[in-house]
Structure formats: structure tokens, C-alpha cells
Design a protein around this nucleic acid. Sequence first.
DNA 1: TAATATTATATGTTATAACATTGAATGTTA
DNA 2: TAACATTCAATGTTATAACATATAATATTA
Lengths: 149, 149
Amino acid sequence: MKLEKEIMQERFKSEHQKMVVNLLFTGSWIGFQQLQILKPFGLTIQQYNILRILKGQYPNPATVNLLIERMLDKTSNASRIADRLVHKKFITRKTCPEDRRSVDVVIRKEGLELLEKIEAKEKELENKFNSLTNSEMKSLNNLLDKLRG
Amino acid sequence: MKLEKEIMQERFKSEHQKMVVNLLFTGSWIGFQQLQILKPFGLTIQQYNILRILKGQYPNPATVNLLIERMLDKTSNASRIADRLVHKKFITRKTCPEDRRSVDVVIRKEGLELLEKIEAKEKELENKFNSLTNSEMKSLNNLLDKLRG
DNA sequence: TAATATTATATGTTATAACATTGAATGTTA
DNA sequence: TAACATTCAATGTTATAACATATAATATTA
């Protein structure tokens, strides 16, 4: 839906200004939808994000620093989010033997299984979600990548 | 920058999946930048958002309900955000005489002046911020609007 | 019109984002 | 190698998002 209608604002001063608002609004909109999928599994978006990073590394460990680097929200507290995932038994954490300042974080079998269940649910949604064609999604992705420079 | 490189993920299962991550990532990225602009003025993004809605209504009042409807993040607590803005003397709030359940919220002169200062700063940034042409920004806006259906 | 339902806002609670600080381990250099 | 600087992770603190509930005013209806 046209942003102007959605937030009832008549017009923006510039395309740039509309873009900023549009990205904030759409980001929050898609975050809300993601959260609805994740909630039944007891995960937040950032917890899910960390599990996926760890799946990408698997079977290698990741350090907390590596998690922070790759997280979508760099200012969230990776160490404490990892805490919660340890508590839920989705990941393990132990001091890195090569550098005892670091910790090695690894996703557990339980975490990998959880991701599979979630990804199935996401696929379901993806099918209903067809306001953009595949080539439009590609354009959108390219524009976002270019925007960030 | 290409999202795959930015978050060091080799590839996504689908354009759709990349788009979801890209929108979350870019939304958080632009939110971070906005916050850096707002911080010297002592405002959060949601506080700024409310001030702009009130400016749009000015000189008419808005109810808290109207604020919620039009806010970028619908789940934030408009009533308490308004509290903070009252405390900072940027808005006024009084019970609506026609419906005493509602409250009339109006931006004060101080609030309007603050917005002008902030908008000047945003304009400065906008000039440096030219990785997308105006027509690309327009395409991006159209794709975002279309995505939300 | 009395009883019930709905609406608008405020408030209580918990988890987490945002930011600052700490403490231990490692790296650097005089 | 002793002193200092840097790095990594954890933790303390504050504000706010997310959610639930409460309270008062208004609308509906039996």
C-alpha cells in the first residue's frame, strides 16, 4: 500500500525523505511478521539470527565477536542473546583453547532441528506472499544493496 | 554493499528469503543513522515520529489513537512516548472535551522549532547520501509500497 | 434506564536494546 | 621482561518495546 496512505501523510519533501520513512516502516512491518512466525517457537528475531549464523558456520564454532559482526542489529547484546540460547539448549559455549579471551559458540543438533521446523513455516508464508514477482524482488534487493553503498 | 558480503553469508535459499533479511538489515541500518542525527537533540526515532505526525495535524490536535495508527512502529507505547514529549515541553496534552476518554495532543511552538533544526541537519546528510539516483529512490519506494500490498 | 459491552488511554511487568564499564587474556614496546 | 595498551566477553544500568491488565467514559441493548 502506498506509504502516504498507510501513514496518512499527504506528501514528503523529497524522494529521499520518503525512502527513509519507507525503509523504517517496511523494516518494522517485516520484523513484525517475522516475529509472528518465530513466537510459537519461543525465539526472538535476534535469537533466530544467531542460530542462522551458527548454522552457516556449522560444524565450526563462531566467537561472540563474529556473531556481532554478522548480526542484523549490531547493537543488540550478542553475549546475552547467546546466554538465552544456551539456556534453551540450542547452542553450546566454551572457552576457546587457542585464545582464552574468546569463546567458541556452536549450534547443537536441537538448534539445527528447530531451524528446519521454522524454515518450513517460512516457506508456507512465502507462497502466499506474492505481491512482488521474483524479478521485482531481485530489483528491490539490488537497490537496497546499492543504497548501503 | 551486497548483503551477502555485508553479513558474510554465502547465499540465500531464495530471492524472497534474501529480501526479508535485506529489509530487516537495511531498516536497522537506516534506523541507526537516523538515531545518530536525533541523539544530539535528545529524541528517539519514535519521539521524532510523533512530533512529525503532530506537525502534520497542526494546528489541529491528534488523539493518542491517531498517533498509534500512524506510527511507524505500531507496538511502541504512544501514551508513554507522549509523556516524555510533554515532560520535554514539546507537546501539550489535555482531555478532549467532546469525548472525555480521549486526549487532545498538540505540538508546541518549541516542538515545531525543534523539527526545523532537525530537518536542516537531515538535509545536510541527504546531500552526501547519493548512492542512489532520484529515479532509483522512486523505484525503491514503489517496490516497497507494492510489497506491503 | 439499568446492565452490559466497547472504546480510549494509562499503567504494571518483563525482556531486551543501547550504552558504559569491568576484568581477564593477549599483544606490544621500552 | 615489566609496563602499558588492546582485545574479548561479560555485566551493570537505563530506557523502551512488547504484552497484559486496569480504569474511566461512552455506546448499546434488554
